[in-house]
Nucleic acid binder design. Structure first.
Lengths: 198, 198
DNA sequence: CAAAGGATACCTACCTAACGGTATCTTTCA
DNA sequence: TGAAAGATACCGTTAGGTAGGTATCCTTTG
């Protein structure tokens, strides 16, 4: 066992495996389960190998978060590419992705992982940088207060999902909520603060 | 110098002090800083004393969370008592409290602490139980989808606040957002899913 | 084209520190 | 006088991290 000593050296692959195993551990058992030993064991190498690829443990977990963000980023881009309407395009994609089934349904583990990330200042920083960058990039099409409101509600729904009583409870309203949020991203849907009623 | 050996025994007070010091540590340095040594040191007693009052560390931190929830609960009740309009009363109070200045402005530490709590399954459970109980209690006045929507947005705003770039940034839109959310809690404000436009 | 040899990949063994927790003792109080 | 309050000393575990070894790779040069 652990005789990966004699074998073809595949640094890139080992590095990827370490990242993937760390991500899997984080997803299935929480960020706290991402220990150096657990990750290296899961990846079939030793601690020494891990520390060869990542000088500090922090570098490893930051790599995991970077991957996660990159994935989200790509998903959002893909969703935006399919959207013909410019106004609110980013917000629609954001709602679509963050409230999408695989993100929410799988035992609530995605939400739990995201929360753990936000709980750690250094990782939270990564997320907030990404957020700010994307928001700035789409400020022309998604700068309205109405759209920000929709994104806020999406975040709230995501939290509410996490803070359910039973993790196995279904989320029946989720689809309806998502549809409603997306419907609200079309121009003039909500109107200014004084609304449509007077 | 840890010579609380000779002095009047005040178990209730020591217990309270331990809880308060734990809360202070959690607020100022995060939940991870709440170690038995740090708390007992801050409280001016020894680990032995702490373990006399709380059989497990978990009991201590659960006590802190229970205090926090009780405080929120009381604040919400107070806000509701001043509200003459029945419909959406709980939602208004919820928005008012969770988005209130002291909660948000003090260095973002409150939000960080709440996130840390949600990241820990056992503590998250306490919060979700409380949420479910209050929601059930006010289902008659605050059961509408519109109101749930408002509460969702409030949660989202709270998260968005946490995920700012710089913790020292002002939150100028916060007041406006809160006002808008509260305005939306009045009957028929938002309308059903098909909205007010057609 | 082969042997050399440094650089890279990876492993073994160890270290230190901190954590939660226990056992047991002394002091105070009712 | 005995139970509660509090202190002291100790333990086992586990974490991240380091030191230094060995095996493989890649390039250079005779």
């Amino acid at each position: 066992m652990a005789t990966a000593y004699h074998r073809k050296k595949q640094p890139e692959l080992v590095r990827r495996t370490l990242l993937d195993c760390a991500a899997k551990l984080a997803l299935e058992q929480g960020l706290a389960a991402v220990t150096v030993q657990a990750v290296s064991l899961a990846a079939g190498v030793t601690k020494g190998a891990l520390f060869h690829h990542f000088p500090r443990k922090q570098a490893l977990v930051e790599g995991v978060v970077a991957d996660l963000i990159a994935q989200l980023d790509a998903d959002i881009d893909a969703a935006m590419a399919k959207d013909p309407e410019p106004y609110g395009r980013y917000t629609r994609a954001y709602v679509d992705i963050t409230l999408h089934d695989p993100m929410m349904t799988e035992g609530g583990q995605w939400a739990a992982l995201h929360i753990s990330i936000l709980a750690e200042p250094a990782l939270r920083r990564m997320v907030s940088d990404w957020f700010a960058e994307r928001l700035h990039r789409h400020r022309d099409t998604d700068g309205d207060a109405d759209l920000e409101f929709v994104r806020l509600a999406a975040d709230g729904a995501w939290i509410a999902y996490l803070v359910r009583e039973k993790p196995t409870d279904p989320v029946p309203e989720l689809g309806a909520l998502r549809a409603r949020l997306i419907a609200m991203t079309h121009a003039g849907r909500l109107g200014p603060a004084d609304g449509c009623r007077t």
